[in-house]
Design a protein around this nucleic acid. Sequence first.
RNA 1: GGCGGGUUGGCGGAGAGGUUACGCAGCGGAUUGCAAAUCCGUGAAGACCGGUUCGAUUCCGGUACCCGCCUCCA
Length: 474
Amino acid sequence: MTEIRLSNTKTRRKEVFTPIDPENVRMYVCGPTVYDRAHIGNARPVIVFDVLFRLLRHVYGADHVTYVRNFTDVDDKINAEAQRRKDAGDPRSLEELIRERTDETIRWYHDDMGALGNLTPSAEPRATEYIGQMIAMIADLIARGHAYEKEGHVLFRVRSYEGYGKLSGRSVDDMIAGARVEVAPFKEDPMDFVLWKPSTDDLPGWESPWGRGRPGWHIECSAMSHELLGDSFDIHGGGIDLQFPHHENEIAQSMCSHPEVEFARVWMHNEMLQVEGKKMSKSLGNFFTVRDLLDQGVSGEVIRFVYLSTHYSKPMDWTVEKAVAAEAKIHGFIELVAMYGDLEEAKALEPEKAVIDALSDDLNTHAALEVISKMTDAGTASRLARNLVFIGLFTYERLAERVNDYRMGLALLQSKAVELQKLRDEAILSKDFSRVDVFKEMLARANVSVQMTKTGVHLRPEMDFDPAKLEALK
RNA sequence: GGCGGGUUGGCGGAGAGGUUACGCAGCGGAUUGCAAAUCCGUGAAGACCGGUUCGAUUCCGGUACCCGCCUCCA
């Protein structure tokens, strides 16, 4: 069996991965708060853990991996957007508007992440569907002395869990010393965090032993992962920004609820994304969503290629230059598959061992792409196709589409090649190449690559080949 | 202020205490009516300052810069 090694944030070491139960390898990744379109930073953990999901499925079998990624659909920003619509005159109830907003955002999320080649996780729980489990967990934490109720709030007693701060390498005392947090009067200790808080009548809320209210953010993940993956599971993932406080709090909640076992065995965090060397922010004007890129014509496979070029544990820079380079590379892949590949044959192949080995070494996606990029001759075309699909740059359907487009373009260029050949033959005799050059120039404008060799004229569609432009040349 | 991560040739980007990473771009050549494509060849690095070592880009310490978290923003 392939040995997978993963960097564990908890131990700060690269470790051999051994699942609790190879028949059911379990992974939880923190998903989005569904208030708006996913921006390009949101896509990074999705792609990173999608590759891990694919690798685990390959090694342990597609039916032996459970991947859970939640949707947080309780949030002030969601409420605010719904309220905005209501204020704008929408006659429906706030509850209906909230539901509409979360539903549409989830739909967008699926569309956008799907366009980037991500598989759908095994389960995508919505927080609002697990309120009962959250209440039960909170009640249990109170019973065990790890939480307390005060003024309608339930707070987690951070000092009651001695392991607090281990994941992020912080001591509670240091944090308080350097903290700039406003201490709510109902907190026993400044570090205590909210498990449950009261809700006003006009905002979403659920009945609980502590009155009508709603859950804190951190308890969602503890409750949902427990419900779907059990007391203990293999891998917990997310962005490095979630390491503290979110993941630290999750560990505290879950470990105090189920102290007899380890909550998540391996913690993995992806580094952040920048844009053209700078932090992405609305104020710098370099903020954009995945949908923005797709609408600009940057294809999902190009975006994914750029993401996979940088190891997940390093900061990644999104640049136009990278996107352009990736596009050329992707075009080369399609060309090779179109010329020499056979997708039916590809489907029967196993992914390349060197690709699996690279990914097994702490998800070295860059090395995997290097292996794939070296498949450049006719004999490797079907293998190339197989591996492109494996790593998620294409589905077979999407690849077939692109390959067919290329082949159709090629067929369309046949008559042009004959024409050019004729002009060239004449020119060789007359020594006057002006008509050949004009024709060549027109082809170039339609994004056709022109090659003239001793064996004849060869025309191939380039990246932005446009058959319509070709017709216009007549 | 506290904690954590990063810094490799023009660009992207790895591994490894000592042997060419690699890709793209560049340059030289072959080829071409001119090109393109292809093939052959080739220069170029390890932020800075110390330390450990026979030897460090790789280990340790410090400095600078960038980024994240500490504020329910991935």
